[in-house]
C-alpha cells in the first residue's frame, strides 16, 4: 500500500518538477510547482507525518505559490515569449553544466553511502507515533499524534531557534515594507547603470507589456517603485474614474 502511494506521488513530483523547468508559460510552470508540492504532501502522509503534510499544503501551496502567481500576473511576464530573454550570456549552457555536475555529485554520494543516503532515523519516540498492536491482533490508535511531539520539541528543546526564526521573519517583513515604500515627493527614475555582466540587454518594453492594460495604467510611474497592492488599488481607481 505504502509502495503504491509512494510511486504514484513520486511520479507526480517528478512530472511537476519537469513541468516547472520545461513549460514556457510562467503561470503553467507555477501550477506544475503546485503539483510537485502536493505530491510531497502525499508522501508526508504516507510516512505518517500528518502535520508536515498539512503545513506543506497550507504554507507552500496555499500561500507561497499564490504570491508567486500574484507577482507573475501583476508584473506582466505571464506570456510565454518573455522567457527567451537571456540576461546572462550562455546561461542555458551554464545551467546544463551545473545540473550535470549536481547529478554526478548526488550519484557519487549515493554510491559512497549506499543504502544510507537519507541519514540516521532520529530518536524513535521523537519521530512518529504508531498504532499499538495488541496481542490479539487488533490495533489501538495512537493516542497522541505527532503534532503534540512536534510542538513539545519546538517549544522546549528548540524554543530559542524557533523564536530567533520568528524574529528573522519579522525583520524580513519590516525590510520589505521599507524597500517597497514610496519616497516622498515625485518619483525619480532609477539611475540607468548597465550591469557589467549584462552583455546582452533585455528588451526594455515587451510587446505584451505595451498592450497589457493593467501595466499601462502605471506607465507614468516607475514600475520598480510600485508595490503589489498599490498596483491593485491604482488599477481599481482608474477603473472607477473611467466608469
Amino acid at each position: 500500500m505504502e509502495a503504491i502511494v509512494f510511486f504514484v506521488s513520486a511520479a507526480i513530483i517528478l512530472a511537476g518538477g519537469l513541468g516547472v523547468i520545461v513549460l514556457r508559460n510562467p503561470v503553467h510552470a507555477a501550477l506544475s510547482l503546485v503539483a510537485t508540492l502536493f505530491g510531497v504532501a502525499v508522501l508526508f502522509i504516507d510516512m505518517e507525518a500528518y502535520f508536515l503534510a498539512a503545513v506543506q499544503v497550507i504554507v507552500y501551496a496555499g500561500a507561497i505559490v499564490v504570491l508567486f502567481l500574484f507577482v507573475i500576473m501583476l508584473v506582466g511576464v505571464d506570456k510565454a515569449e518573455d522567457i527567451y530573454a537571456e540576461p546572462i550570456i550562455k546561461q542555458r549552457q551554464f545551467a546544463a553544466l551545473a545540473a550535470a555536475g549536481m547529478l554526478i555529485l548526488v550519484a557519487l554520494v549515493g554510491v559512497a553511502f549506499a543504502g544510507d543516503v537519507t541519514g540516521q532515523p532520529s530518536n524513535e519516540d521523537m519521530t512518529i507515533s504508531r498504532a499499538i498492536e495488541n496481542p490479539d491482533g487488533t490495533t489501538t490508535p495512537a493516542e497522541t499524534s505527532n503534532i503534540n511531539q512536534l510542538a513539545e520539541a519546538l517549544f522546549t528543546d528548540y524554543v530559542f531557534a524557533f523564536e530567533i526564526t520568528a524574529l528573522l521573519l519579522t525583520i524580513a517583513v519590516v525590510g520589505a515594507v521599507v524597500l517597497a515604500r514610496r519616497p516622498k515627493g515625485d518619483l525619480q527614475p532609477l539611475p540607468d547603470v548597465e550591469p557589467s555582466w549584462a552583455l546582452r540587454k533585455p528588451r526594455a518594453v515587451t510587446p505584451t507589456e505595451a498592450t497589457d492594460p493593467s501595466a499601462g495604467d502605471d506607465a507614468d510611474q516607475d514600475p520598480d517603485e510600485t508595490t503589489v497592492d498599490q498596483a491593485a488599488t491604482d488599477g481599481a481607481e482608474t477603473d472607477e474614474a473611467k466608469a
Binding site: 503546485v34 502535520f51 498539512a54 497550507i58 501551496a61 499564490v66 502567481l69 500576473m73
Partner: peptide, 23 residues
C-alpha cells in the same frame, strides 16, 4: 489526523480557482 487543518488547507487551495479563472 490533521482534522481541522484540512479545512484550512482546502480553503487556501480554493484561492487558485478564483485567481486562475481571472487570469
Amino acid at each position: 489526523h490533521i482534522g481541522i487543518l484540512f479545512v484550512l488547507a482546502m480553503s487556501s487551495i480554493a484561492v487558485y480557482g478564483i485567481m486562475l479563472a481571472g487570469w
